[in-house]
């Protein structure tokens, strides 16, 4: 096995496409090193992208934010302007693991690990975020929704990796929120996750919304029926009931050591409702 730590994206792309055997990207390493220790992954090459300065940046771009693939959760949490624009995305990233994990874990790593329960992914999908994928054939932008394809699997081609994630411009009276359910107060994997991003008009009527769920299907779910339940409403009780119902209906979870089908289905609606109310308050609340 070898360890390489290129200092530019081009070098990394070159190294990745020319590596023989299995090559894994090492960003925060909080999933990969655990999987290697458990013998689940045995890469021939580890490509550490943390020495690439460009991937450490949080950059304002077209009113939105571009977040490099090597930016840790802690760094995102300390970026006041980013937190102000996308509190739901940042809180989702900051829920991943302990303080110690926050010092290492990256949002791009969370995305590419492709766990159905990844905390940041529903928030990114609700935010309509776009991943910038680089590879031997150049770069392409892909909706975050389309990166994971199933548990542990992504749509990335051989030789490709996610270099950054773009959060679009945040409009006025818009906000997002993410909630997850875990049995303890910290240190667990989401049993259910729900993210809501919405925009209110001056009267408090919801004009746009995206609702995404985690841990209730093989990959993140964008629940358009749930968004439709909110749009045009004042986020009053009937709208929230409809939202919760749509989320529970969309959820197609499995039963496993972390939760039952019934529990996940039920709580998906509960969390979506609560996240909506938080996003509403953040967006300026009812008129």
């Amino acid at each position: 096995m070898q360890y390489i730590s290129p200092t530019t994206v081009d070098e990394a792309v070159h190294a990745l496409s020319s590596a023989t055997g299995a090559c894994r990207i090492l960003a925060g390493g909080t999933d990969l090193l655990v999987q290697m220790r458990a013998g689940m992954k045995r890469p021939d090459t580890l490509l550490d992208i943390k020495r690439i300065d460009a991937l450490h940046q949080i950059t304002a771009e077209d009113g939105g934010w571009r977040i490099g693939a090597a930016v840790s959760g802690a760094e995102m949490g300390e970026h006041a302007a980013l937190v102000s624009d996308w509190p739901g995305v940042v809180e989702a990233v900051n829920l991943i693991g302990s303080t110690q994990i926050q010092g290492r874990a990256t949002m791009a790593g969370n995305l590419c690990n492709a766990s159905p329960a990844a905390d940041s992914v529903p928030a990114l999908v609700a935010a309509n975020a776009v991943a910038r994928v680089v590879g031997p054939h150049g770069q392409r932008d892909v909706a975050v929704l389309d990166i994971p394809s199933g548990p542990g699997k992504t749509t990335l081609e051989p030789g490709e990796f996610v270099a950054s994630t773009y959060l679009p411009a945040r409009g006025a009276r818009s906000a997002d929120a993410y909630l997850r359910f875990i049995p303890r107060t910290e240190m667990d994997i989401a049993v259910v996750g729900a993210a809501v991003s919405l925009t209110l008009d001056a009267d408090g009527i919801c004009t746009a919304a995206r609702v995404a769920l985690g841990a209730v299907a093989p990959k993140v779910l964008l629940v358009e029926a749930a968004a439709r339940a909110l749009i045009g409403s004042r986020l009053d009780a009937p709208a929230l009931d409809a939202l919760a119902e749509a989320c529970s209906a969309a959820a197609k979870p499995i039963a496993d050591k972390r939760g039952t089908v019934e529990f996940r289905t039920q709580v998906a609606g509960v969390l979506a409702r609560r996240a909506t109310l938080i996003a509403q308050t953040r967006a300026g609340g009812p008129a």
């Binding site: 049995p183 303890r184 107060t185 910290e186 240190m187 667990d188 994997i189 050591k257 972390r258």
Partner: peptide
Amino acid sequence: ALNEEYIYGDDGRLQNAGFLDYRIPVASD
């Protein structure tokens, strides 16, 4: 009382052999 348990699968193997899913109380609990 609240969270700790050995969980065996249908294959008779222990499914939560780690502190991630064998959930002992943490300070914030």
